[in-house]
Simulated scan of single mutants.
Amino acid sequence: MKKIVENGLWKSRFIVILAVIFSFMGSVILFFVASFDVFSVAKFVLSTLLTGEHPEHFHEDIVAGVIAAIDLYLIAVVLLIFSFGIYELFISKIEAACTQDDCSSVLNISSLDQLKDKIAKVIIMVLVVNYFERVLHTDYKTPLELLYFALAIVALSIGLYFTGKVGKK
């Protein structure tokens, strides 16, 4: 009885293949959507240049569109890292990621903590990019608001600095 239960538990790990498949699909979808967004920004820039118009917030709209696409790309990377990591942790090592001498792929995950750290770093970058996307459309009316903006940039910089230090000696 013990052997049957243990064997069943061990084989139940294959249920994570659903997370692998659907997070990979989500990643691919987000890569396409972000690419379409960049294409739309490029089309907007070309049509604006060809017509000779110069909308009031032309530069801000371009930067916001590109930053929104970067945000989607980063989320797609999170899903991709998650799908590769879960596959390697629960199913099998990905042999195609390893060459004859080296198996040090960026997506090589050896523990759940390592997967969590990689995903956390990318999520932090998503939040930073999202913050700067929102900052583009903010009007600063008082010196105190500008001071808050400067303090937020300093806090983000310090956070990114310490994020880079995690896991390094």
Rank of each mutant, 00 (worst) to 15 (best):
V5Q: 08
G52F: 03
L49G: 02
I109L: 07
L80W: 01
F58C: 09
F132A: 06
G52S: 06
E133C: 13
V77K: 13
I109F: 03
A150G: 07
M125C: 08
H137Q: 10
K169Q: 07
F14E: 07
G167K: 12
I124V: 14
Q114K: 14
V33L: 15
V135Y: 06
A42F: 03
K118Q: 09
V129Q: 06
I119F: 11
H54A: 04
A19P: 00
T142P: 07
V106I: 14
Y148M: 08
Y131L: 04
V38W: 04
C98Q: 13
A155I: 12
I21G: 05
L30Y: 04
K43R: 15
L49A: 06
V66C: 08
G26P: 09
L46Y: 01
V33T: 05
A64G: 14
S40I: 03
I70S: 15
L79K: 09
G167D: 02
F132R: 06
V128N: 01
C103N: 00
D37I: 00
A34V: 00
I153A: 15
A120L: 10
K2G: 13
E145A: 10
P55S: 13
I91H: 10
L9K: 13
L79D: 09
I4G: 00
A97Y: 14
F22L: 09
F14I: 13
F31P: 05
F39D: 07
S157E: 10
F39H: 11
I4R: 15
K165T: 02
L50A: 07
L136G: 06
L144I: 11
E6I: 08
H137L: 07
I86N: 06
G8A: 14
F82K: 03
S104H: 12
K165R: 11
M1P: 02
K3Y: 12
L46I: 05
I94A: 12
Y148Q: 11
F14N: 06
G167P: 05
L80Q: 01
A34M: 03
S47A: 08
Y161G: 02
V5C: 03
T142G: 08
V166F: 06
W10S: 11
K165F: 09
V166S: 00
S157P: 03
L147M: 06
I21H: 15
A76W: 02
C103Q: 02
V122F: 06
V41A: 12
F39S: 12
Q100V: 12
L72H: 07
K165L: 13
L127T: 14
V129H: 04
V41W: 05
F90D: 08
A97K: 09
I21P: 03
Y148G: 02
K11D: 04
